[in-house]
Simulated scan of single mutants.
Amino acid sequence: MAYRLACPLARDDALGARLVSSAVLCTVGTGIVLHVRRRMLREVRHARRIAEAAQSVLLRPPPPRVEGLAVAALHLSADPGARIGGDLYEVTATEHGVRAVIGDVRGHGLGAVRTGAAVLGSFREAAHDEKTLAGVLRRLERAMDRHLRERADGDHLAPDGAPAAEEFVTVLLLEIDPDGEVHALNCGHPWPYRLTGTGAEPLARADPLPPLGLFPLPGDLPTAACGRLLPGDILVLHTDGAEEARDADGRFFPLRDVLTEAARDRPGTPQAVLRTVLTALLDHSAGPPKDDVALLILRNERCSPPTRPTRGASRSATADR
């Protein structure tokens, strides 16, 4: 409008004047569009950096080593463009041993992220404060109960639109002592696999407790003794999205078979196992899986603990002297 009112050329009906006016208007319009586009791209990049920073704080990458255990982890979100979803994991060294958690929130999306944040935040404190795994699990249960009450007072909906009362999270807690002894508490989560030189076997076969959020935990919470993680042994913690990924024919991903082959190849690092599983999973599902997938891999790189002589052997040695 300013151009047409201020410029005499804009009011000229000659063909040449019209062409010049059209060129001027196109140039100005293109400049405005490019300016708006650049500004929007800057805002999108800024928002993405903020989102990535928040996601990395919530589901932060584990350190490569934790008290003699080599660590690798991976999370694949079912939501396009998201780095995290409804799966969670954490591993930390405490005065009570190395403690790890892996969990899977019902559904996925922003609501599942909130639930996972509530559980992870509680674990990060309780893992250091509580002397027993049972105490840690009690803290996670209370955090989940508070979260469900807040959701019930708010939007009343779980991540996938179901009532908040139907929201739950499966949780597996592990404690690895300095001598390699492994103890676990399982609330509805798939048992991890232990990789040795002979193959891949479930860490335990005990019936799990119900997931957090469905029913109150029982009064007695005995931990499952899962044996000793020997030097070189690997634990593969995973969510059900890994085993339930389907191919074009509807067949489930053979996670145990893939891990068995990886164990026979004796991979040197958890990263090698992670790459093997990820490559096979993406080939099987022909792209990203339809559900969130989390993998947490721990390898015992400690030296063998010194053997203690039996009392009989000590007495014999004393008699010989």
Results as ranks from 00 to 15, higher is better:
M144L: 10
D145T: 12
R146G: 03
R146I: 03
H147Y: 09
L148K: 02
L148C: 02
R149L: 12
R149Q: 14
R149F: 04
R149C: 02
R149S: 00
E150D: 15
E150W: 05
R151Y: 07
A152F: 01
A152L: 13
D153V: 08
D153N: 13
D153P: 04
D153W: 12
G154S: 13
G154V: 04
G154N: 03
D155R: 12
D155M: 11
D155G: 12
H156G: 03
H156N: 07
H156Y: 07
L157G: 07
L157Q: 15
A158L: 06
A158T: 07
P159E: 10
P159S: 11
P159C: 09
P159A: 10
D160M: 15
D160S: 13
G161M: 01
G161Q: 01
A162F: 06
A162P: 02
P163S: 11
P163F: 10
P163N: 06
A164V: 06
A164W: 01
A165F: 01
E166D: 13
E166G: 04
E166L: 04
E167P: 01
E167C: 06
F168H: 00
V169S: 04
V169R: 00
V169Q: 05
V169C: 04
V169I: 15
T170G: 10
T170P: 09
T170I: 09
T170W: 08
T170E: 10
L172S: 00
L172C: 05
L173C: 03
L173A: 05
L174A: 12
L174P: 05
L174V: 08
E175L: 12
E175Y: 07
E175T: 08
I176E: 11
I176K: 12
I176S: 10
P178I: 15
G180W: 12
G180M: 06
E181A: 15
E181C: 12
V182A: 14
H183C: 14
H183I: 09
H183F: 15
H183S: 14
A184C: 05
A184H: 07
A184K: 08
L185F: 13
L185I: 06
C187Y: 00
C187D: 06
C187H: 08
G188K: 03
G188Q: 00
G188H: 03
H189P: 02
H189N: 01
H189R: 02
P190F: 14
P190W: 11
P190E: 11
W191V: 00
W191P: 07
P192C: 10
P192T: 11
P192W: 09
Y193N: 12
Y193R: 05
R194N: 06
R194Q: 05
R194L: 13
L195S: 01
T196W: 07
T196P: 02
T196E: 08
G197Y: 04
G197K: 08
G197D: 11
G197T: 05
T198M: 05
T198W: 04
A200G: 08
A200H: 06
E201F: 13
E201I: 11
E201C: 09
E201R: 11
P202S: 09
P202E: 09
P202K: 05
P202R: 15
L203V: 11
L203S: 05
